[in-house]
Amino acid sequence: YPYCPYPPSLLHIEELCDSIVRSHRDTSQFRLEELQALRWKLFSREEIHAYQSKSVDEMWQHCAVRLTEAVQYVVEFAKRIPGFRGLGQNDQITLLKTGSMEVVLVRMSRCFNTENSTVFFDGKFGSTELFKSLGCGDLMVAVFDFAHSMCALRLTEQQMALFCSLVLINPDRPCLEDRGRVHRMRRDLEVCLSHMLHRDNQESLQHKLYQKVSVLQSLCSLHVEKLHWFSQRYPLTVHSVFPPLYKELFT
């Protein structure tokens, strides 16, 4: 991979695009058709009440488990990005520690119904009220707003795949050992995205997508901030019942 000439040939670009799209498809937690079919399967009043009646720590634990599941699919996606496994373990971990939550948030927009502002969670669709007992309404509203704005871009699955790979392969992350190599991967992915948007006659999307990157970063900081608040109130819950992968990534 690192010996590819620059600019990459059209063949290389097309192969890279295909590979990223395949990786995205093979590591998506839910298929789009599946989500579409369940679009109007909403939680009942009683079910919503049951979520709202959970204690703060119960609901945090529940969401930490769900988030960790989503992250595991992102790890698989990362491993299938051409060149990722050629990076040193330290750099693979650095990119995932900083980028996996961002990719989860981008992917979440696939699970979002803008018509009624609900998200697919635990097998049905629910609004922000479902997450009331977490005690972080501002984070939930911000996450839902982000999903709304992503949906407004109406990305194809191919564009979504490319964007997710760009979010992950970010040479600006601190503590990278071989920044040059990450930079080369990123450069080729950017060429792929431009190529794809040009082909789709949607070049105006490029700027809109790059704008999303800073929103993603602020959402992730807010998540970490909320986790910090929670772990000060419930240190034992975090220590003893939170998924180990969640702790490795976010604490």
């Binding site: 790890v75 491993k79 995932l96 992968l245 490795e248």
Partner: peptide
């Protein structure tokens, strides 16, 4: 390395 035990394991598993 110890700090990211699970991530290490996930990264080392071959893709299924």
């Amino acid at each position: 390395k110890e700090k990211h035990k699970i991530l290490h394991r996930l990264l080392q598993n071959s893709t299924s």
